[in-house]
Write a protein that binds this DNA or RNA. Sequence first.
DNA 1: TCTTGACCCTGTAGTAACTCCAGGGTCCAT
DNA 2: ATGGACCCTGGAGTTACTACAGGGTCAAGA
Lengths: 143, 143
Amino acid sequence: MAKQELSIGALGKLTGTKVETIRFYEKIGILPAPARTAGNYRSYGHDHVRRLTFVRRVRDLGFPLETVRAMLDLADQPDRPCGEVDALVVEQLNEVERKIADLERLREELDRLAHQCRRGGRVAECRIIEALSPHHEDGRCCP
Amino acid sequence: MAKQELSIGALGKLTGTKVETIRFYEKIGILPAPARTAGNYRSYGHDHVRRLTFVRRVRDLGFPLETVRAMLDLADQPDRPCGEVDALVVEQLNEVERKIADLERLREELDRLAHQCRRGGRVAECRIIEALSPHHEDGRCCP
DNA sequence: TCTTGACCCTGTAGTAACTCCAGGGTCCAT
DNA sequence: ATGGACCCTGGAGTTACTACAGGGTCAAGA
């Protein structure tokens, strides 16, 4: 493998991705097919590391591959007219902000639980479900 | 259906969940089996609304059902000794905080894109991938 | 040089978490 | 009393991986 080039296993370790998942992303077109070595091994460069890291994180945040694909398209054709892109961006922005709000309520409650634990004793009065309950509603659940 | 009680369809609408998903959660024990009406229809109360809302939001945030189950257990047996709970809570807390950080970087970039669009023109200089790239590393990708 | 263990290849099958559909029963407003 | 909306169960299909099976590549060491 040439310098600066990574085997599929090395790429997997760097990005916390299983080798099979990388091949799967290639098959469905999320990752471009890399160059091959003389022995037919896949050979990845730094762009692949960046792209795969992005994909994995967005997936980890609960967005479907379809959304990942849309975001990658934004990055791949940055000179598209804005009209067609704006709606997508605003939509994703709303979802991202909603997720941040939910996560912060979850964090608050986990934090409270952790402190309650430190002061010895039992978990008593766990309000973790209330943390994400309907009365904190922002409208999306109850149309 | 008695007053205050909901049909499966009504519960679905209230929580933004497909009817089939609700039955699936019952089958795998995430939601307790509700009472049945004379005609064998499922009949849900307010606790089901709260619990299902919680499940859906935690899933939407990218946590697996296994984690949801662990969090529900926290809520279901709030007088467990803390030792066995603390590790779980701290672990979830770390993951929640990591996700918040990632989402905030994503929001920043989407925000930048949206503003760039408002000022007319093209998407030029899309840095959405960089927003979640390896050099913002917190360690979890590169062990 | 030969071998052996770690790593790679393709292709197929299995899993998690839904999602959809077929075939049929219930409810109620007209 | 009847047609349309909604419910039931059971099973197949989808998405996004994940795990083999069967075989090739490669570098280190005997």
